[in-house]
Nucleic acid binder design. Structure first.
Lengths: 212, 212
DNA sequence: AATTTCAGCGTACAATTGTACGCACAACTG
DNA sequence: CAGTTGTGCGTACAATTGTACGCTGAAATT
């Protein structure tokens, strides 16, 4: 089949809309100032053609968040598998996440922003992505601590803190000049290590107070 | 003077605009979907009268952020002065901040959101408020640690983490049902303590490696 | 008392918005 | 090959936007 099938053509146009939107988000625009007509123009289609792919701008937003979240989660898994056994897993994870953030600025910002909006239809979707990552990290922390024979206090809370720091500094990085960037990355790594130390200290304490 | 002076009258109208905007933000609207006409209607004035007080919506936003930041900073100072010497300064600070956040939902959300936007004219203002609070807290942490005779590693980074957690969970609280709220507050407190432990552990380490 | 100032209003207009409606034409189905 | 399907387009319209312009009446100044 050299002729483009209808399904494929439609999928391509759909992706063209999503890509155009993501690009515009990356340039600094906030999602809710983006009009349907503008997106259509950016995607190179007629305003009314938009409706052939999304019911409204809300559906487009949800699709964007979903696609981004899936990619990010599998990426982090991949990093852990590969880096497992290396000396600095924290560093590689952080750098990978930040690189991904940087390559997908618009979406990263949108997700963090929308997760904190109030009546946003995206809030739930964004928060789900958030807690998924957090739980995932907590699970990994426990596994890793057990491997090292170090007790860990409140692993889920530690993971929450870490994810919070990762995302906030991740976004802050996007507004930072290139020369300051590595300094911020190093700072974030120290902050994560600090949390690890705290969790270990609390785990140690719990063991002393409540010996096995 | 029973007659209302012109200056006073103008100041009142100006505040009426700001209050109406803050109220609308609190109900979940994002600032950049708010139109000048809408704000004017909410404040009970004609659209064109808006210009007598602000040059445009941007000026209004800046005025809102500035006013909020000042109030918040003096509030936190006040808490520290009052609670100084008590057993749980962390707890009182956290609860005060969260209460203030709750009472000023719209503004709290807006500041956090705008600090992470990109080409927003508010970003700088919001970030300034952010770093001011962070530096302020770091200074206090050092002072407090010295008083207790405990060395602290990376106090500024510890403060950064704390502020990040305070703000993110502070916002998250606004989207939380009343019965879950106290549970989240307790979690935040543990997270802050964890960071303190981490900082102390790192301070201890530095002392051992690099004895005085 | 006469004059100036200025907050607030109403009208007006060009842009931009979401979307309803119907047509065209290429891809599919039988 | 004839018929159906459905993507994409152009037109059209009512709402809403920011803001320019000129007026009014009361407070402030002289």
């Amino acid at each position: 089949m050299l002729k483009v099938s209808r399904k494929k053509q439609k999928a391509e146009t759909r992706q063209k809309i999503m890509d155009a939107t993501a690009a515009e988000l990356a340039s600094g625009r906030s999602f809710d100032t983006l009009s349907l007509r503008e997106v259509a123009k950016l995607a190179g289609i007629a305003p009314t053609s938009f409706y052939r792919h999304f019911h409204d701008m809300g559906s487009l937003g949800l699709a964007l968040i979903e696609q981004h979240g899936e990619t990010l989660l599998t990426l982090m898994h991949h990093v852990r598998e590969q880096a497992s056994g290396r000396h600095s897993l924290i560093r590689t994870s952080v750098e990978t996440l930040f690189d991904y953030n940087f390559a997908n600025q618009g979406m990263s910002r949108m997700i963090l922003l929308e997760s904190m909006s109030r009546q946003s239809i995206f809030r739930e979707a964004a928060q789900t992505m958030f807690t998924t990552m957090s739980r995932d990290l907590a699970e990994f922390l426990v596994w890793d601590a057990k491997k090292r024979g170090v007790p860990l206090g409140h692993p889920q809370l530690a993971a929450n803190s870490m994810v919070a720091i990762l995302f906030t500094t991740g976004i802050a990085l996007l507004n930072t000049s290139a020369e300051d960037r590595s300094r911020h990355v190093e700072a974030a790594i120290v902050q994560l290590r600090m949390i690890m130390r705290g969790a270990e200290a609390m785990g140690q304490e719990a063991r002393n107070h409540d010996p096995v």
